[in-house]
């Protein structure tokens, strides 16, 4: 009978390989999201706009403010809707307040609709880049500086951005600040 050792080692190697492949799918998924703008996940890095403004097109940009799990923070979008030219720098303001009596840490997550628009929405500065630490009853005005890429597809005339605050107080150790 042929020795099975070689075949068994290959199969165990394949099993281990597929187990690691399962974990490799996670970063692969993020790469796939960036390329295709899958479900509106945005790149979380600041990008300077090219400075060329396409005034021929006016895109309506809407802002939605949510708190996940009815997190006890008051979070309101001050600019619900604005019109922006592709390439033009614009700013959207939000108001956020911690209604509880303890310090809390929140993380804003952004999602874009339609999802094709995700690739063409560049944020130069955004409160969603880092954690927001709010003490008891502390209120704060936060904002996002953004610009729309000039080669945004013609079909997109209206983009909606949903900001959702997540309570990550117990998820992250609060830095002593």
């Amino acid at each position: 009978m042929k020795s099975n050792r070689k075949l068994i080692l290959q199969l165990c190697g394949a099993t281990l390989g597929m187990f690691l492949f399962g974990f490799a799918l996670v970063p692969l998924y993020d790469v796939f999201c960036d390329i295709t703008g899958l479900n509106g996940k945005l790149e979380l890095v600041a990008k300077k706009s090219t400075g060329v403004i396409d005034t021929s097109r006016a895109i309506k940009v809407q802002f939605i403010a949510n708190t996940n799990e009815s997190m006890p923070w008051d979070f309101v979008a001050k600019d619900v809707e604005m019109t922006v030219h592709p390439g033009e720098n614009a700013r959207a303001d939000f108001f956020v307040q911690n209604l509880t009596n303890e310090q809390m840490v929140g993380q804003a997550i952004v999602s874009v609709s339609p999802s094709i628009g995700a690739k063409y929405f560049h944020k130069t500065q955004c409160f969603c880049f880092d954690r927001q630490v709010l003490n008891a009853k502390q209120a704060q005005d936060v904002s996002v500086l953004f610009s729309l890429d000039t080669d945004l597809p013609e079909s997109v005339k209206k983009i909606t951005l949903s900001y959702t605050f997540f309570d990550i107080t117990d998820l992250q150790p609060v830095a002593a600040n």
């Binding site: 199969l11 394949a14 099993t15 281990l16 390989g17 597929m18 187990f19 690691l20 492949f21 399962g22 974990f23 799918l25 996670v26």
Partner: peptide
């Protein structure tokens, strides 16, 4: 089975 069961094991481990 050898190809996909490990992926399920990975998912539940996550």
């Amino acid at each position: 089975l050898v190809a996909v069961m490990p992926v399920l094991a990975g998912t539940v481990t996550m």
